[in-house]
Write a protein that binds this DNA or RNA. Sequence first.
DNA 1: AATAGTTTTAATCACTTGTTTAATTCATTT
DNA 2: AAATGAATTAAACAAGTGATTAAAACTATT
Lengths: 210, 210
Amino acid sequence: MMQEENKTERSIPSTEEQIKAAARRVFTRKGYAATRTRDIAEESGHNLALLNYYFRSKEKLFNIIMMEHLHLFIKDVLGIVNDESTTLPQKLELLVAHYIDMLLANPGVPVFMLHIINTNPDELLNNVASALDTEQLVLVKQWRQFAAAGNVTLKPAHIIMNLLGLTIFPFIASPMIKRKLHVSDQEFIALMTERKQLVPVWMKAILASS
Amino acid sequence: MMQEENKTERSIPSTEEQIKAAARRVFTRKGYAATRTRDIAEESGHNLALLNYYFRSKEKLFNIIMMEHLHLFIKDVLGIVNDESTTLPQKLELLVAHYIDMLLANPGVPVFMLHIINTNPDELLNNVASALDTEQLVLVKQWRQFAAAGNVTLKPAHIIMNLLGLTIFPFIASPMIKRKLHVSDQEFIALMTERKQLVPVWMKAILASS
DNA sequence: AATAGTTTTAATCACTTGTTTAATTCATTT
DNA sequence: AAATGAATTAAACAAGTGATTAAAACTATT
């Protein structure tokens, strides 16, 4: 049997948690295939066999981490998108701010997500935001009203791609951006922070241009 | 010695070229680490040992393909960006159209490039568009004039990120877009083709909004 | 302290992977 | 046709990999 979960403890994380944290780092840095179980063991400071003792296999460990990421990703977004008390433009601002803050705190996430997208197509992509494509979302209702008022002719797909492209892409391409545009780590953070205000402005300009 | 290059021949590609083409496909589909030399051999329909016979090693083969991609990538862009006879807005339209056409023809390229960005940081990123960050580009000169006229307050980094984000990101996230937005392969191509006109319009709206 | 159950370790297994080898086939020249 | 060198093959090697094992160390309960 396994040791009790110990979730509330604030002291030293359990070895299970330490291995998971190490795996999170290594998988994010190198991707699934390039990560060796020995890398994770070394990074965690624990014996190689403990990886299989706690998680059965490399793949199971990866799936656990992946699911945690997805859950984290979706949970906050759902809160914003389903809030009756905010308007459509407010939701736009909140979404952008949330994504940028989240990505500034976890710069490795996009690489991680992309790796998933291009390797686990079916199994995973059904889970990704499976709660998100429901037609019940407050955001969708508000959008319908907005569109019905004749305020926009652009296809929703374009708008979503624009929002994500303007928000997420800089983080995906950050190594190249930093190098080719001579942007330091500090300056990159400053740029992204600026974009929290700018992206919603740009999105409104895009909507008005159609 | 090696068989003569035979570059002009239009008939059957040489086994060397066949292996390279197979490697291109498999590397693009699975990434470097997840690709086994046996996968490439099988995909090419040739014996495993021929891979090392022609290319010495898996890594050398990968580097050759990588360099070809980069060269292709840069060559066309340089042509557009350094053209004295086109205006700034025209360059914008040409760049977007070129990228979208190129990505529609080679949907795997972004994954390939991202894989490089996040694994070969130093060695490669210096080569990527090393010709591009020169201050001599016609585009840069034209931009300076445009900015000096007080037409824009936005930092160039934002503009470049927006251009690339609006253009390239949809291809990176295409598996998720297709699934979550219920877009078929055909519809995706149609959407991207629309964007050839739309992105320049949006970019101008963004520039005007600042 | 003895016991039982859990956690950790070192060693090893079985298999995969990149690469090499030695032999064979093929093509070209003499 | 013989000979030479290139192209191709089947087989194997050495190192690396995920996983397992059996023993040891640790922890708690009696």
